[in-house]
Amino acid sequence: MIRVQQEDFDVGAEMAALRAGNTAIGGMAAFVGLVRDMSGGGDVSSMTLEHYPGMTEKQLQAIEDEARRRWPLQNSLIIHRYGTLEPGDQIVLVITASAHREAAFESAAFLMDWLKTKAPFWKREDGTAGGQWVEARESDDSAADRWNAKPKNG
C-alpha cells in the first residue's frame, strides 16, 4: 500500500492496521525519516517537499511491487509526505511485515534506498542561509545500486 499525503501519520496506528487479522506475520520492520535542523548551508527552519503528482504514486507503487517480488512479505506500507515541514517532523514511513525478520529488515532497507533515488520528490531547505534546493547525493545512488549487485530472494 502506498500513500502520498500532506498530513502527518501515526506510526503505531499504521503498524497496528498493517498487521491486523494476519497471524502469519512474525515480525515487522519500520523506518521513519525525519526533518533534520542542520544541513550544509546552516540552520534549517523549514523544509518544503515538492513532488510530481501522478508519477510519485506510479513510482512508489513500482518500488513496492519490486520489494514484494523479491521478498516474501505479508504486507507493506509506504507513506511519503509533501508540503512544508519543520525540523523534527516526520517525512516518510516504510513498514514491512513478514514471517521472519530477515525479509522485513532487508525489504525495508531496499524500499528506502530505491525510494530515495526513484520517487520524484525534491527538498527545498529554508533557513538562516536563505533557501536552497537539496542536491542529490552520490551515496544515495550507491546505496540503491547495491540491490542490483546482490539481488536477494528471501
Binding site: Y52, L115, K116, K118, A119, E135, A136
Partner: peptide, 10 residues
C-alpha cells in the same frame, strides 16, 4: 513530458 533535477525524497 517532465523535466526535473535528480530526486531528493525520503
Amino acid at each position: 513530458i517532465a523535466l526535473f533535477p535528480p530526486v531528493t525524497g525520503g
